[in-house]
Design a protein around this nucleic acid. Structure first.
Length: 513
DNA sequence: CGGCGGACTTAGAAGATGAGTT
DNA sequence: AACTCATCTTCTAAGTCCGCCG
């Protein structure tokens, strides 16, 4: 990890060194006391050489390696669940290494121990052949619990949390639960008007708890915020709706040309920054003003409310309703609306794909899914601009040439000259087309540079919307979903015809309410 | 009934692979 | 054939939320 920025972080190397010293003998501990006097370069060099070897491998070597890996997957990567052969997603244990939390994590750099058989609980069928632990070792426990979905588990030594070996995303059990998630989101549609009317009414409540709950729910609905459970001190300081602190919001009665503005600035899940200014209802604004009044910056905005109470409340409004259903619902609805609005049936497949991308991006922005700017983005953009510049010049030159030819063709009136002019004209059209494409790519890339599209595609958008849209618009599904995604969403591909529309239209079967 | 651990879902980064270009 | 860049896969951290236990 020496080439990585995190090694220069004081917390990182101190945590590492503390753990490292714990692995030493008493004698070693007496000698090795200062991280900065240690030189790990030989180890670094070794691993870099290994990596280079891998890169430089011949075709045959690479093929042999792949064959070996395939055999390995076949042997260890599958299991039987209710008689069906299912693929296991992570059948390899997490290897030892240094813990890398996201953001400002107090435990970064701590040594993640190698997991041994004696750490592992095996969960398998009563009649199944129990897998063998490595020679001379024993499993921590073998159990037969069919109420959970994991096959093996252990407790990670850094954070003390359970880790699981589970089935992959296209297993029956996970597809079913995915499907259920979207059915719940669709069900919300039947209640949403009433829920919104109620929380608006509750902004006026005499009970401050009810009022805070109503404002929090408004944020979750309107801004797709996460609920924000309480966190331990030994984790990165990130927040969600209920854990927002006074320092995370700024209230502006007027800002630029907007009124009743709330400026959010906080670190959410994975320490991704949420930085938006939003116009809100005057009543929300005034409530917020009251909530933060006379409070220090480190106090909760919603000090009377916690995530559990908010979810408890939602449970009463609809069976199965929790705060995260709002994210699913609003994300899926956004995609559907955007597609409805932007799709031109006459357009080419390429143009339609651009529309899909736009719609997808709108969802990602709603959910605040971000990525770091890709390496070399600046360079790529510069090259692109250069290409555009060259293309424009070429077009200008050709255009002059073309006009000249046209004139002489009209003057001479010969068929040959006309043909030559026509040919140039076509060439010109082609160049203009290419220029258009380049410019489009430039905008698209710039707009997408810090937006992560896959998370919403994989976890928030009802795949049936995309399937229906593809069928209706004659867009091959492979253009939208890659192979893995098609497998994961096979249920949706089978289920949705071109008329599927989120959230309504096709009948909702499992309706509990 | 509230605190906490357990189980499952969501998340972006890094690494691997592959396709297109020079 | 080497290189470049995009896409796909893997990895595991970090959320949500439920249910159990004292």
């Amino acid at each position: 990890m020496l080439n990585h920025e995190c090694c220069r972080n004081r917390i990182f190397y101190r945590n590492f060194f503390r753990d490292f010293r714990l692995t030493m003998t008493a004698r070693e501990r007496k000698i090795i006391k200062d991280f900065h006097k240690c030189n790990f370069y030989e180890i670094f060099k070794f691993f870099q050489a290994e990596s280079n070897k891998r890169l430089a491998a011949t075709k045959e070597e690479k093929l042999a390696k792949r064959k070996k890996n395939e055999a390995f997957v076949n042997k260890y990567g599958f299991c039987l669940v209710d008689g069906h052969r299912e693929r296991i997603s992570n059948f390899r244990l997490e290897p030892p290494g240094l813990f890398r939390g996201r953001g400002d994590h107090p435990k970064m750099g701590m040594i993640k121990r190698r997991v041994q058989a004696c750490d592992i609980i095996i969960n398998c069928g009563r009649d199944s052949k129990i897998p063998m632990p490595p020679r001379g070792q024993m499993w921590k426990e073998v159990r037969h619990d069919n109420t959970v979905t994991w096959l093996a588990s252990w407790v990670d030594n850094v954070q003390g949390q359970s880790k699981y070996i589970i089935l992959n995303s296209w297993s029956k059990i996970r597809c079913e639960s995915d499907h259920n998630k979207y059915e719940t989101a669709r069900r919300l549609h039947k209640f949403i008007d009433k829920i919104r009317a109620t929380y608006r009414e509750e902004w006026k409540s005499k009970d401050i708890f009810v009022r805070q709950r109503a404002v929090a729910l408004y944020f979750i609905d309107k801004l797709a915020l996460r609920v924000g459970n309480e966190k331990e001190k030994d984790q990165a300081d990130t927040v969600g709706c209920c854990s927002l602190r006074v320092e995370h919001v700024q209230l502006h009665r007027r800002l630029m040309d907007k009124e009743y503005v709330v400026a959010f600035d906080f670190l959410g899940k994975d320490s991704i920054r949420y930085y938006k200014t939003v116009e809100v209802e005057p009543r929300v604004f005034n409530n917020l003003k009251l909530f933060v009044k006379d409070k220090g910056k480190s106090y909760y905005v919603f000090d009377c409310l916690n995530a559990h109470e908010l979810n408890d409340h939602l449970k009463n409004l609809m069976i199965g309703l929790t705060t995260k259903v709002f994210r699913t619902y609003n994300a899926s609805l956004t995609l559907q609306n955007q597609l409805d609005e932007l799709t031109d049936e006459e357009a080419t497949v390429a143009e339609k794909l651009l529309v899909y991308n736009r719609a997808n991006r709108a969802v990602a922005i709603l959910c605040n899914h971000q990525r770091s700017i890709p390496k070399g983005h600046q360079q790529i953009m510069e090259n692109l601009r250069k290409k555009i510049h060259n293309k424009s010049n070429a077009i200008n030159d050709l255009e002059a040439e073309f006009n000249e030819l046209k004139r002489s063709a009209t003057l001479s009136g010969t068929a040959k000259d006309k043909k030559i002019a026509e040919c140039k004209g076509k060439q010109l059209e082609r160049l203009k087309d290419q220029l258009k494409k380049l410019k489009l790519e430039e905008t698209n890339r710039e707009e997408n540079k810090c937006v992560a599209l896959t998370t919403s595609k994989l976890n928030y958008i009802d795949p049936r919307i995309s399937v229906a849209w593809c069928k209706k618009n004659n867009v091959p599904i492979e253009k939208i979903f890659n192979k893995t995604q098609r497998t994961k969403f096979l249920w949706a591909i089978h289920m949705a015809d071109e008329n599927y529309h989120f959230p309504e239209e096709s009948p909702v079967i499992d309706d509990d309410n």
